[in-house]
Design a protein around this nucleic acid. Structure first.
Lengths: 135, 135
DNA sequence: CTACATGCAAATGCTTTGCAACCTA
DNA sequence: TAGGTTGCAAAGCATTTGCATGTAG
């Protein structure tokens, strides 16, 4: 898969992929940088960004387009949806099944050629919900 | 509505609201700034950002959390979904009905207290679709 | 008059990029 | 050894903020 695009498996690329695959937290580039730094102290944040881009274009990982300011990454490339806590920004997977028929429905009623959709739930995680019972 | 929060209806606030209500393009803060500048040449971009925040907190307009780098604004405060063109970033409303039952479904299967959801379709608008028939 | 609001500019936060040195295939 | 890749630093872009001045109620 790397060969076809004239790409190389560098140490940095390998470690970023390995570390992301250990995380279920849907980390941002910066969070991945912090973890990878333990193994590669001289790696730069720019390299992390570049590799996350390459890996998501290869389909090895998924770049998440969630609301909020920063992009997050997911080792799970299967289509699935997420919940984000409004208070602490924790992101978790949901057990909601992919809504493929939604796109078909829209297909007949819009002039757009639909190629996909993003669905994200917003809520309060148990911890934050406990802290503020009034909400 | 303004009085309750000790807010004032300034010229800037009024013009921003009026101009946004003329637009169906779901403009970004910068695009609103450009339009409003025709009527108020000395307005600053910071003022536009501040007022869009105030107005969306008041519920007079809606701040859209779509994918892509910049936030967009919608005068239509009713719950509805959007399609974004991957190529030109044009955003339009969809006729897809609000999926309220989705949140109920998730309610039973997650530890999160769900308060809402965002759904966005991705596609090609007619213009961009024509330009690239191979895609 | 007195807060809230504005204009201006600087600062922030995330992400991208230019470039010389480096290293994988 | 060729060209993809890295580290570093600077630049980019959207948005936010501090502050003195302006103005709505």
């Amino acid at each position: 898969m790397l060969k076809e695009k004239n790409l190389r498996m560098t140490t940095q690329r390998k470690v970023i992929l390995e570390e992301l695959r250990k995380l279920d937290t849907h980390p941002s580039a910066d969070e991945i940088y912090e973890v990878v730094r333990h193994r590669l102290p001289r790696i730069s944040l720019g390299t992390v960004y570049r590799n996350l881009d390459v890996l998501s274009e290869l389909g090895e990982i998924q770049k998440l387009e969630l609301s909020g300011s920063l992009k997050r990454f997911d080792w799970d490339t299967n289509k699935h949806y997420h919940v984000r806590c409004i208070r602490c920004n924790r992101v978790e997977d949901t057990p909601v099944a992919p809504l493929n028929q939604l796109e078909d429905e829209l297909y007949d009623t819009t002039v757009f050629e639909i190629v996909g959709h993003n669905l994200e739930f917003i809520g309060l995680c148990p911890k934050c919900s406990k802290k503020d019972p009034g909400k």
